Computed example of a mutant assay.
Amino acid sequence: MTTQSEPRHDPSLSAIMSERRQLINLAYRLLGSLADAEDVVQETYARWYAMSRQQQEAIVSPGAWLTTVASRICLDLLGSARARRERYVGEWIPEPLPDRTEWISGRPGGTSSDPADRVTLDESVNMAFLVVLESMTPAERVAFILHDVFRYAFAEVAEIVGRTPAACRRLASSARRRIGASQAHAASTARQADLVRDFKQAWEAKDIDALIGLLDPDATATGDGGGLVSTALRPIEGGERIARYAVDIAGRVPGLTLLERRVNGQPGLVAQQDGVTVVVMAFDVAGDRIKHIWGVRNPEKLRSWTAGPQH
C-alpha cells in the first residue's frame, strides 16, 4: 500500500527527484550554505508529498513548481538571515566547497554524497561572487540568480519574487552592476593559481617581505570561526598587517600543513593540523596582487572537506 511517507512507489518519483540537483544548486547560490540548501530542498519535497495525488497531477510543470517553492523558501530565509547574522560571532563567510574529486562521503546527518546532489562549481559560486551576493537585498539576489544564472524569464521571476517583471528586471540589473564592479579586474585562474602558490611558499618560509609583495596594499583578510574556534573577529586590513598576522600564526601553530586546493572552483589553500582540515582559504586576485582572502575556520562549514593527497 502506497502512502505519502513512501514516495518511492510513486511512478512520478524519478521525474520529481531529477530536479534535486537543480534545486541544490539554486539554493546554495541563494543562501551560501550547503546545509541550509539541503534543508530547503528537503522542505520543498516535503511540501510536494504533502499534496494529494490529484493536486500533484494538476500541476502542469512539477519542476517549475519545485523551483518556485524552493526559491520562495530561500527568499524567506534570506529575509531573516540579517537578524541571524547579527547574532553570529565575528564575520560570516559563505560555506566553502571542495572540488568534486574531494567531496566527502557520508556527510553528517546521512546526507547522500551522490554526484547529483553536488553543486556545479562554476563562476557563479566562486567566493568573491558569493560575498557580493551577500551584500544584496533578498529580492535582488533571487531575481539575479534566477534570471542571470538559471535563465528564468522575468515574467517567471516576478511570480516567484512577488514583484512586477519590470521591477525584477531592475533588481537583476542592479545586482549585475555590483557583480561587474567586483570582477572588473579579476585575474585569470592560471594567474590566481600562481599567486596562491607563491603565497603558500612565502607563508611556509615566514617571509614577511615576500608576502607583502604578493598582497595588494589595501588587501583585506576575513576569518570565520563562528564563535566555535578562535579567529580574528573583524577583517584585517592592509597587506602588511595581513602578512605579519600570517607569519604570527605560522609561529604559534606548529605542524600546520598547507595544501593547494580548489575552493569553490578557484585556486585556494587548505591548512591541516594532524591530518585534520582546520581552515579553508579562498582568494580574490586583481591584476598581479591578492586583493581579498577569506579563511573559513568554523568546523560546521568544513564538513565537506577530506584530507586528500598532499602536494
Rank of each mutant, 00 (worst) to 15 (best):
M17W: 11
V276R: 15
A35R: 15
P138H: 05
T67S: 15
P7V: 02
S173L: 13
L23E: 13
I160S: 05
Y49S: 14
F199P: 00
E43T: 15
V278S: 04
A27T: 10
G106T: 02
L302P: 08
R85N: 00
A175Q: 11
S105M: 09
D284N: 15
M136F: 10
L133P: 13
W305Y: 03
V279M: 06
E19C: 09
V253M: 05
G275Q: 04
A232V: 14
T2N: 10
V149F: 00
R191Q: 11
H185N: 12
A186Y: 01
W103N: 08
A210L: 03
R234D: 06
P11N: 04
P299C: 02
R252W: 09
R163N: 01
R297N: 10
V161R: 02
A167V: 01
I145D: 10
D288I: 04
N126T: 03
R72M: 09
T189A: 11
S230L: 12
R234M: 07
S61W: 04
A271S: 14
I208M: 02
A190W: 04
A27N: 08
M281K: 04
R177V: 14
L30C: 09
E6S: 11
G90S: 06
M127W: 05
R241F: 09
P94I: 02
R169I: 01
G227V: 13
P254M: 03
M127K: 06
G227A: 08
V125C: 05
Q42E: 15
D274Q: 13
I24F: 10
R47K: 13
Q272G: 05
V69Q: 15
P165L: 02
Q192P: 12
T277M: 03
T2V: 08
V276P: 01
Q192G: 13
P96H: 04
T277R: 03
E102F: 08
V60I: 08
G32L: 03
I73T: 14
S230N: 08
I208Q: 05
P62C: 07
E57C: 00
D284C: 05
I145G: 06
A50V: 02
R87Q: 07
A166I: 01
L30R: 03
I160M: 11
P96G: 07
